[in-house]
Computed example of a mutant assay.
Amino acid sequence: MPVMNAPSTPSVEPRSEGFDRVRAALRERDHAHEPLWLTTSARSAQEAADALGVSLGQIAKSVVFRCKADDTAVLVIAAGDRRVDERKLQVYTGPLGRADADFVKARTGFSIGGVSPLGFAPADAGAGPRLFIDDSLFRFDVIWAAAGHPNGVFQMTPQQLVGLTGAPVIEVMQS
């Protein structure tokens, strides 16, 4: 499905380390769409939707939690118009706590507002975050996720997101 009000064109020069990692990860996986560099920041799902001219739900927002049992990061990719129900998520993860900006950066390699579902930096502790995809994204033909920087985004289908990440699809949105 074509995007109305197409955003800025793809960047030919790297804009940030995180953006470069995501671009490389997409190329490694032969993804059809290069990440785009927006002329405005898209730190929130609403800002991204406005910049792209799409509905809020089409933004695949990244929500990071801190697993209390082992201090690992848990990353949920969810529709921008929905809220994660921590109680539902804890069925899969155990008790969760809030993740501050330093924790998010250390565990994903991205700053809040640019956390991508792929292209994680190697963490000091080893593995990247535990990743889940909420089924609320499957309402849409086309979705957009952060590409490693608040100005970076990339396009895909929900099915492509599953293929790119290998993450399980679960239902964890508030009713």
Rank of each mutant, 00 (worst) to 15 (best):
L118Q: 03
M4E: 15
V22T: 09
P7H: 04
T9A: 14
L36E: 07
V76K: 08
V22C: 08
L164H: 08
G166S: 09
H33L: 13
P10A: 09
G163I: 01
F19P: 04
P122D: 12
G53Y: 07
R15H: 14
L161P: 08
R66Q: 13
Q58V: 11
L75S: 04
A42W: 04
T157C: 15
A73N: 03
E47T: 01
L137N: 02
E13S: 15
M173H: 09
F120P: 01
V115G: 02
F154M: 07
R107L: 01
L56Y: 09
R83M: 11
L26G: 01
P122F: 07
D134V: 02
D124P: 13
A25M: 05
L131V: 06
L56A: 09
V169P: 06
A60D: 09
I143K: 07
G109F: 07
A73M: 06
L36A: 11
W144V: 09
Q160N: 07
K68V: 13
I143V: 13
P122G: 13
E13G: 05
Q174G: 11
R107F: 00
P14C: 09
T72P: 00
E13C: 11
H149Q: 11
G94S: 03
R87P: 01
A147S: 12
D134R: 01
E17L: 15
L137H: 01
P7Y: 00
G80D: 06
S44E: 00
R82D: 06
I143A: 05
T39M: 00
M1S: 12
V63N: 08
P7R: 06
S136W: 08
L131T: 08
T108K: 00
I59K: 01
F120A: 02
C67Y: 01
S8M: 03
V142Q: 13
D70V: 11
E28C: 12
P158M: 00
V115P: 04
V54I: 15
P150G: 07
D20R: 15
A78H: 14
A73H: 03
S41P: 05
V162M: 10
F132A: 00
T40P: 03
R29W: 06
V172L: 01
G126I: 06
F138A: 11
G18Q: 02
R29V: 06
R29C: 07
E28M: 13
